[in-house]
């Protein structure tokens, strides 16, 4: 079983890196601004294929190691196999970036910004309301546990080791039973805040919609996952389902998001170069936007010149701080 789960995780990780070239707008490849149609050119296709061949090779090596290694060395194999994928993917990414840099075109320079003078209210898309459902799942799980309190074992496993055997237990107390639900509620609330910040705190664009959808989908998945974990002492789901279901859901979310990103030829949001630090940190107190599009083209990042970005960071730290208390 452990070999199967580890193999799945390696394939999943490899799959995530496999679609990285498609996770940016069509005009950006391996963080390089490329001319229109470059992705379809022989050089563009070869660059992506070369990156993916390398990934395929390392995932294959990992799978062989996981399948044929004796159980005595399984722990280090489990640790090294994902790290190897990450390291090779990072190296391959940088290598391809260098290869296509000669084809780069000038980045859109912050010069003129245009705004439509529409008084239409900035209404949330319909799917944003799906963000309420995870709280329903969590509340339903809490009600189910309350109604079936006597069926909860006095002690139940909450963590499993590499061998698949439980190595941490929790007792039937309010803290032990409802802790994961409280934590999930915090997490879902944070994602709702992030989704709303991305909608009302970013400039209007196609990407804003994609980011909102992704946030809601992740929150949806987290709500379901934690509701499942919370009722597991009674429902007794198989361990592989608890591990693999969220990975499969994440994979689905990423694939849908990538397809949506590739559907637009909209230009990337221009932001002034002088406010970017190391190309990844945006600090512009003069820009009221809370979230701006990353220079790498992969999603959005916070404008640390906006005080609300620090509130969001503080909320995240507070949530992480509650892990030892609630879980």
């Amino acid at each position: 079983m452990i070999r199967f789960i580890q193999s799945f995780m390696c394939v999943f990780l490899g799959g995530l890196f496999y679609i990285i070239p498609n996770m940016t707008r069509r005009g950006i490849l391996f963080t390089v601004n490329v001319p229109p149609g470059f992705r379809e050119s022989p050089e563009g296709r070869e660059s992506v294929s070369s990156f993916r061949r390398l990934l395929g090779l390392v995932v294959l090596i990992d799978l062989l190691a996981i399948t044929f290694s004796p159980m005595s060395i399984m722990a280090p194999v489990m640790l090294i196999s994902p790290l190897l994928i990450i390291a090779v993917a990072a190296w391959g990414f940088v290598r391809q970036r260098r290869k296509i840099e000669p084809f780069a075109v000038a980045r859109t320079v912050w010069r003129v910004r245009q705004a439509e003078l529409s008084g239409q209210p900035d209404r949330l898309p319909w799917f944003a309301w799906l963000g309420a459902f995870p709280f329903v799942f969590l509340a339903a799980a809490a009600a189910y546990l309350y109604a079936n309190w006597d069926r909860i074992p006095a002690e139940f496993p909450v963590h499993w080791g590499p061998s698949g055997q439980p190595n941490r237990w929790e007792s039937r107390t309010v803290h032990g039973v409802y802790g994961p639900l409280f934590f999930a509620a915090e997490l879902c609330l944070f994602f709702v805040a992030l989704a709303l910040a991305g909608w009302y705190g970013a400039r209007r664009s196609y990407m804003r919609r994609v980011i909102l959808g992704t946030m809601v989908a992740v929150e949806f998945m987290l709500g379901l996952l934690f509701a499942g974990i919370a009722i597991n002492p009674i429902a007794q789901f198989p361990i592989w389902a608890i591990v693999l279901a969220p990975l499969a859901a994440m994979g689905f979310i990423v694939i849908v998001a990538v397809n949506r990103i590739q559907e637009t030829d909209e230009a990337a949001e221009p932001t002034p170069q002088e406010f970017w630090h190391a190309q990844i940190i945006y600090y512009n107190p003069g820009d009221p936007a809370l979230l701006v599009e990353k220079r790498t083209g992969m999603g959005y990042t916070l404008n640390f010149g906006n005080v609300w970005s620090w509130m969001l960071m503080a909320a995240l730290v507070a949530i992480v701080g509650t892990i030892p208390i609630l879980l």
Binding site: L117, S118, G119, D122, R204, G286, D287, P288, A289
Partner: peptide
Amino acid sequence: LKPGAQLPSMRRLAMELGVH
């Protein structure tokens, strides 16, 4: 911009233009 037309809220226009 004709009489009766609604302009964007101040916050939204400031955000779109990247000004205070």
